[in-house]
Design a binder for these strands. Structure first.
Length: 354
DNA sequence: GCTGCATGCGCAG
DNA sequence: TGCGCCTGCAGCT
């Protein structure tokens, strides 16, 4: 489920709720056998690099992150992985919008509380809301439990214990992460301009830029009005720099709110008008009206483009589906300037925050 | 209950 | 380039 913004939110949730104190770690599923090695250690830090999450563990809290004694848990959620948080009121709540999910009562299984204040006789205890007695799902790869709450990991592509060198090796093969202060956009620009691969392929290559998934890719290309199949070598520097700037803004919004929104308000209105027109043309099927107004092209294949009404297309490219509007995305030239809309506007008219 | 799909990635060939 | 893997869930029967 996650693109890079989600992983940054997860890192923030860990920093908020679990970093700084001793934690218990276990692998209820049994597949992360190294969990025992870090049990009762201090969770020193949590950071995101692209879609990779790194959690630092040390025997005590007076250790530097780069000390040899620090052990790193490296987690990549892949397509199916997720973290579930549970804890005292306020635990991880700020960051629970979006991918980090907070358990709701019906899905919880709880042990009876040991102090005997189970007064409803159903064997589940009066405190089903007490996170301390939540049984992990059988598929839980890793549970991290601190004084204020816990985090359960299921279905990750990667969950492994590394030393500092192992962590660095992973970071070294990643391109710049638009959400990190230390990101070097020039690395991204140079890689793109030097490659004959289609720009759509390059944007999904984590060695070129770290953190983009299929949604950001499709939406970025649309906002740049860029043909997904143009080789990087055909693009102009200004355009590629514009894509980076746009990406930074989009992902910052995503990290702040937990939602990917790429459409500008005026284009959502236009979309409603187009839908009305298509219905007048005889398409009465209400299911063609998308509830989601957040995207221009992602998952909108066969629907009319929000801007020009051309049918949005989709096609497999290097094993993943690319979505684009053939009507709007015609930029192919090296001379093309950045013509995408600056994204400050898309959510500016949204009421409230988050 | 079953099937297919999904915001990924690494590996073999 | 295709496949296997990790899991949850929507949309079928």
């Amino acid at each position: 489920m996650p693109e890079g913004h989600t992983v940054h939110r997860l890192a923030a949730a860990f920093r908020d709720g679990l970093v700084g104190g001793p934690v218990r770690t276990s692998s209820p599923q049994g597949r992360f056998t190294e969990a025992a090695q870090i049990d009762r250690m201090v969770l020193l830090g949590a950071e995101a690099v692209g879609k990779h999450l790194f959690l630092a563990f040390a025997p005590s809290d007076d250790v530097d992150l780069d000390a040899p004694v620090v052990r790193w848990v490296h987690v990549h959620l892949g397509l199916y992985g997720s973290w579930t948080f549970a804890g005292e009121p306020g635990f991880a709540v700020l960051h629970a919008i979006g991918a980090p999910r907070v358990r709701v009562g019906e899905q919880e299984s709880a042990l009876p509380e040991p102090d005997g204040d189970d007064d409803d006789g159903d064997g589940r205890g009066a405190g089903t809301a007490d996170w301390r007695y939540l049984l992990p799902r059988p598929t839980t790869r890793l549970r991290i439990q601190g004084p204020r709450g816990l985090a359960d990991l299921t279905g990750p592509t990667a969950c492994e214990l590394l030393d500092g060198a192992g962590r660095q090796a992973i970071i070294d093969r990643l391109g710049p992460d638009p959400l990190r202060e230390d990101a070097d956009p020039e690395r991204f620009v140079r890689r793109v301009l030097a490659s004959c691969s289609p720009i759509a392929t390059l944007l999904m290559n984590q060695q070129v830029v770290a953190g983009i998934g299929n949604i950001y890719r499709a939406e970025l290309l649309f906002r740049a009005r860029l043909d997904p199949f143009v080789p990087g070598t055909e693009l102009g520097r200004g355009l590629v720099e514009g894509i980076w700037e746009d990406l930074v803004e989009l992902m910052r919004y995503g990290a702040r709110t937990g939602r990917i929104v790429t459409t500008q308000p005026e284009h959502r209105l236009l979309d409603a008008r187009i839908m009305e027109r298509t219905r007048q043309n005889g398409d009465d099927d209400p299911t063609v009206v998308p509830r989601e107004q957040s995207f221009y092209v992602y998952h909108r294949q066969t629907l009319p483009c929000r801007l020009c009404g051309t049918e949005v297309r989709s096609q497999e490219l290097a094993g993943r589906t690319v979505y684009w509007c053939p009507g709007c995305q015609k930029v192919r030239s090296r001379k093309a300037a950045w013509i995408g809309q600056h994204p400050a506007a898309p959510w500016a008219l949204e009421t409230g925050d988050d």
